[in-house]
Structures are given as C-alpha cells and as structure tokens.
Amino acid sequence: ADKPIKWDLAGYYGMGTPPTKLLNEFAAEVKAATDGKLLISVRPVGELPYSPPEYHRVVGNGSIQMADTAWIAGDIPSAGALTLPLLVRNFTELRTAMQAAQPGIDKELERFGAKPLFWYSFPVANFWGTGSAPQSLQEFAGLKIRGLTPEHSALIAMLNAAPATIATPEVMTGLQYGTINTAITSAFGLTSAKWDSLIKWGYIVNLAPTPSYIVVNQKDFDALPEDIRQTLVTVAAKHQEKMLDFIEADEARLQKELADSGLVLVEAPDEEIEALVKQVEPLWQQWHESRGDTAKATLDAVRSSMKR
C-alpha cells in the first residue's frame, strides 16, 4: 500500500483545550474516512516555533501543511470586517456574514499560497472585569480596559475609559494588581487563559465573534489524490458546523457556570446597545476608508448581509 500522507496542523490553543480536542476529533475522522491515507497531527500552540499571527504565512510557504489561525486582519484585512465592534453579534449572524466575506478572505489568503479549508469561531467577546460590576455603560468611565484592535481602543475611549495595550502574557498580572481592570474577551477566553479566578463581572453587549480559519497549503491540497481531497472537504464541512455548535453551547454553559459561582453578569438593555451602535458606526466607516479595495468590498457585503 502507499505510504500515508502526514500533515501537521498548528493549533491556536494549548493542549487539552476544547478547540484542540475538537480538531483532534476532526483529524481522527479524516484518518478513518480516508482509511488512514491522510494523517493529520494537531500540534498545540507552542509546540512548533511559529506564532499564530503568522500561521497563514508558514502554511503558505509550505513550512507546515495546515494551521488554525485567527487575528490575521493585518495581512487579511477582509477578516477584520467580521470583528468590527457590534457589526456581527452572534453565531447565526456570523454564518450569514461569513458567506458575504468569504470571497474577499479567500482572495487575500491566496496571495500567501494558503486556502481556508473550513472555519469556526471563538465566542462573541464582551467586557469582563475585576472590582464591582458596572450597571450601565455610563459606569465604564475611568475603567482601564485592555482592547485587542484599534477599533476596540476607539470604543473604549468613547466610553470615557482608558484603553491599555498590554501583551497577552502580562494580562493576568495586570488584572491581579490592577494595572488593568477589564479585558475584552469571552467566558471561554477567560477560562482557557486562567483569568477567570480574578474576574468578578461580565458586561454583555455582544461586541463581535472572532472567526478562526483552518488554512491549508494550496499546493499540498492540490497534490492530494482526488478521492482523499473530496473526503477531506466533506469531513471539514461537517466539523465546521460541529465546532460552531459546540463552542456556542460551551460559551453559554461557561457563562452560566461563572454566574452560578458568584460572578455578576449584566445584560446591557437593547436601547443601550442601539445607542452604542450609533456611536461605533463612524468606526466602521473609518475602517472602510483606510483599507484596500478587496476589504472595502468585503465590508460592504457584510454590512448589507447584516442590514446594518
């Protein structure tokens, strides 16, 4: 028999985390469905010396065959259209928005020699903080909030809070000693980074999901025998839905668990969110003006699919 094809998949998360487990299930099913002809090893983040923001690049140049990559809006501006604050607010909307964004993202990834095989998403981000819970967005004034994108920083400033730029490994210390008191992330993000022991409240406005793309080297993909390639695509499509469903449910479960253990969860009222959307809309516009043609078209498509 032919020797099996061996691929590595660089993960975004560490050993034992849900996404890594889910990707392992994906790899196991690929192995079973191809009769062991395609073997994918999932490498948790840190095992290989690449950092997630450049995964699309090392996949593209063939250093590694597959990767799970997120936060790539620097190189793939179209991906940034999906993470603008309050534009896409839940996984149902994301499924629609992704259809609108996919052509742009595909085109921008192609430049690197990478191709998205499927995608899933980290849960929708919210504000999570230490100290006493704010009861309205007015009470955000003076908080020290760690954002992740320029748009987050602008939004934080609109709330009269202080945006802080802190490297991820220092966030834990920052929260512990009060260098910052609020982080933009999800319950899932909190628990996987072990920040949850410090967090006392969550303020739910449903800022944005962070889609994650499983990319594959285009040449390696094209070189697969036809039947294996078909199988891979089919299994991928199935796991895309499976992962989205799991993560959505898991975030709800984690939020409930955190609330049950005494964390204060505040749901922002609809009027407050609508008022905030009016405030952030100029940010979408600014983003549009400062990006290239592909990204502009992507944002237009996403906005019209969201009717926002």
Binding site: D75, P150, S153
Partner: peptide
C-alpha cells in the same frame, strides 16, 4: 513582497 503588516494597532 507579500506586503506583510502587523495585525496589531500600528499595521
């Protein structure tokens, strides 16, 4: 050649 920019604030 790939025009790579940082994905952080400054691009």
């Amino acid at each position: 050649t790939l025009d790579q920019v940082s994905s952080s604030l400054l691009r």
